[in-house]
Write a protein that binds this DNA or RNA. Structure first.
Lengths: 329, 329
DNA sequence: GTGAAAGCGCTAACAA
DNA sequence: TTGTTAGCGCTTTCAC
């Protein structure tokens, strides 16, 4: 069913049909309007948004570029984006970049060729094609993993939580809970190792000595947590606190601790970051610094759409983490 | 950058440019071809696939309709679909229907209006608008949650694992591991309660009596597992096996068991279905009937694309579950 | 109030 | 070997 057929059946011109389906029908007589509406309803006509997009130069689609939907950090964000977008009449298409900078630009090109109106971008952890992706004229908001130079870049929005500060607060939490020998398990490559720096700064504030054998940096995976916890505990059996760069790492650490027969939280306290869905269900349930992922997704989408629709400027939107007390601290 | 500009800069007609970017350039001289390629590369020209789609009547996009990407069962499937699709030059756009039949048809209309070439559909658990979605001419493959009548419908493909059989096997597993008082925790509304029927049939085979107070059916959530385990154990403290309709339920059950201070697997054995990512990380790690989710996604995408590209018929593709022995059985 | 016509960027006959 | 042209379904002036 096309606009042409609707027009023919309703006995009007396609221009008229176009006007009524788009609500630009002030100058259409009630009778005609009704006639068109009836045909549209009867045949369940749905305007072809590809054709419309070609004509209007906007697709009402926003593109999402993210490393891997399989990573439990992302689904909530995507839902937040999608829900907010749908509410405002936008659709969403997303691409997994697989944490691969080359795929990142491929995906970007794909989205461009689909004429998305803007993108929401979470870069890969590997050296990224950021410049290729963010340099262009397509409105973009960077979500999480914001980099130092992005912040200078007035051309794109940013939505994130300050992870260095989160890590700082997490370390403080452990100290306040009585830990004196706090180890840090995180990824080697988070943007400029922000998290690790948060840990360091907390140590300074606390006047605790820094010893690199208390630190294990590799990836944002359970495996890192597992190996890290084992390694640290082997050198330092007296370790009584583990700040983990994310919940995945914390989960791995919990597993190692259980094998090592350390009581959590009595002997060792553990804190994660992210509050992923499953941090509720570890044993014991994980205490963590929650990121408001769903809300961040919503915020990114709203910012982008406000920009697209009303020309509101893109801006920087920093969320606070929220401490979720469960049973590992 | 449009094809027109490329043509102007290269000093050829747009038809020529079109031919070379589409590889239909047997009849183009090497010199011209090179000239065009150079311009394309220099200006990083990317063909507008919206315009192309409008013309060719195909978008090289496949649509995915699923209940909720936030449900840990889906991300793997989506990845499987996306990877297989990308490999063959297709993109993917997905919509969360939120398990809401109305949204289901909205999403369907959205995808149609985007001219997707076909869809992969996982229906909502609520009474679904299946007919509206599967009746139309758009090629479709139903993934998981296949219903009895779908199977008669020659017009769509099906990819699933036989959950009744899975549940049957899971129950048998528990019996073989020494359980005699096996309870069933599942969702009330899985398509025709297939899982529950699998449990029943296993009981029959085993000549075990059926007692409905050993059964708790509600939703596919941890909460159901938690409440179910508590309810069953209260009536029947001697329960020594829990077959769970999915891993989420099993995880909730594990939590209840831990609160009840039942030793798993010594006193009570637990088995789940799905092998979601986190079933690895429960305490103890969950034994479960794995569904090859990633592979199922790939299979659905391949089937659909084979149909689209070569007219191969859509078919029914039944996968086997695979028992993953961990530490709860 | 309504419709004719141009054109969005591209492909595919067909003509030259 | 290359270019001209019609048209995909739609929106949007502008004329009637």
């Amino acid at each position: 069913m096309t606009i042409k057929e609707v027009a023919r059946i309703a006995g009007v011109s396609i221009a008229t049909v176009s006007k009524v389906i788009n609500g630009c029908d002030e100058h259409i007589s009630e009778a005609t309007r009704e006639r068109v509406r009836a045909v549209v309803a009867k045949y369940n006509y749905i305007p072809n948004s590809v054709a419309r997009g070609l004509k209007t130069r906007k697709s009402k689609i926003i593109g999402i570029l993210l490393p891997d939907i399989t990573n439990p950090y992302f689904p909530q964000i995507v839902r937040g984006i999608e829900d907010a977008a749908n509410l405002r009449g936008y659709g969403v298409v997303f691409c997994n970049t697989g944490d691969n900078p080359d795929r990142e630009v491929e995906c970007y090109n794909f989205l461009r060729s689909k004429m998305v109106d803007g993108i929401i971008f979470t870069r890969s952890l590997k050296r990224s094609a950021r410049n290729r992706v963010l340099t262009e004229d397509l409105p973009a908001v960077v979500l999480d993993r914001v980099e130092r130079d992005d912040r200078a870049d007035k051309a794109c929005g940013k939505v994130y939580v300050d992870v260095r500060r989160t890590m700082y607060d997490a370390t403080m939490k452990l100290f306040q809970a009585g830990c004196g020998e706090i180890a840090c398990l995180s990824a080697a490559s988070d943007s400029k190792s922000d998290r690790f720096l948060g840990y360091l700064r907390a140590l300074e504030t606390l006047d605790l000595p820094y010893d690199k054998s208390y630190v294990f940096l590799d990836k944002f995976t359970e495996d890192t947590g597992y190996r890290g916890a084992k390694a640290v505990l082997e050198h330092h059996p007296e370790t009584d606190g583990l700040v983990c760069g994310n919940d995945l790492i914390a989960i791995g650490a919990l597993q190692a601790l259980s094998e090592l027969e350390r009581q959590v939280p009595r002997q060792v306290k553990v804190i994660g970051i992210d509050n992923i869905y499953f941090s509720n269900f570890t044993t014991p349930p994980l205490s963590t610094m929650g990121q408001p992922t769903y809300t961040m997704g919503e915020a990114a989408a709203s910012m982008l759409i406000d920009h697209l629709e009303y020309g509101k400027p893109l801006f920087e939107c920093v969320f606070d983490h929220e401490y979720i007390q469960r049973q590992t601290v």
